[in-house]
Design a protein around this nucleic acid. Structure first.
Lengths: 146, 146
DNA sequence: TATGGTACTTACTAAAAGGTATGTATTGCG
DNA sequence: CGCAATACATACCTTTTAGTAAGTACCATA
């Protein structure tokens, strides 16, 4: 694998490296989070997804879903009813990315362990591994929430 | 796993979900690419890294490396010589992210296969798998490079 | 002392991404 | 027909990120 990869093309998409192609499709501030939530739950309504992805605006959710649908990772199903209902779900291509998302989640746990271990010397820690009582260690006391 | 995760804290870092923590540390336009290149090659000089990460400016490379060093994923070694030489390499924590980067690279290959298969019906394709002659199919003819 | 190469720092500008507010379309109920 | 709820579209503004250019520090050599 060379550094400055040659220009490549698949479909209408031009890229230099398969890694860059992946980043182009699922990178950015919101798309990874949207995909992650869709990966955790089957079909989800727009409103439920809006509430699930912490901090996202309507406009960015819509934009992210449009791009993911266009790129073939997300399926949009309209129910012609009252009130209006639209469900989003992952396609096979989208599902194939879920292991990567889960790997990132697992790495996040191991990184949280690393942060805690760095704060307390003598705390048994191995890179890539999560502490056993991690969920307890990261808990924030109720009254200290900003 | 709930949608709107409770606030968590590890070290000085506050987050709601381990996935979000991962995104905070290795997300953004350049850090994934910098990490990916460091993962492919051992210790790399600043200048070599600059040339390897296609399109990055000096300022953004420096900023990305500073953040990655601060977060414990990258190690910086200064050689006091002429001309000046600094080498960057992954720490154990950084190395632990390499499997995720490689998974993204592999997914990129399968996505490129999907794009090609979508363009040509009847082309055998399975989500998550790369076509066997992918590298040939994505090649761009010399004279068609923009 | 001047020099050159590398790896930065800093200030300012430009571009990209994201957010807010207002408005629209749709369906079926009362 | 009017209404309500949901899921958007659109325009404009704000924030964030990134890029460019000029400058600096360091070391050892000539």
């Amino acid at each position: 694998m060379t550094y400055q990869c040659d220009e490549k093309k698949a479909g209408d998409v031009e890229f230099r490296c398969y890694f860059q192609l992946a980043i182009m499709v699922i990178g950015g501030k919101w798309k990874p989070k949207v995909l992650f939530h869709l990966g955790q739950n089957g079909a989800v309504r727009f409103g439920a997804l809006r509430r699930a992805v912490f901090g996202i605006s309507e406009k960015m959710l819509i934009q992210s879903l449009k791009e993911l649908e266009k790129d073939g990772l997300v399926h949009r199903k309209v129910y012609r009813q009252v009130p209006p209902k639209v469900e989003y779900s992952l396609t096979d291509v989208g599902e194939s990315f879920v292991p990567v998302l889960n790997a990132m989640y697992d790495w996040g746990r191991s990184y949280a362990s690393y942060l805690i271990a760095s704060q307390q010397s003598g705390c048994g820690f191995e890179a890539g591994k999560a502490l056993q009582n991690l969920d307890e260690l990261v808990k924030v006391a109720e009254n200290s929430v900003a």
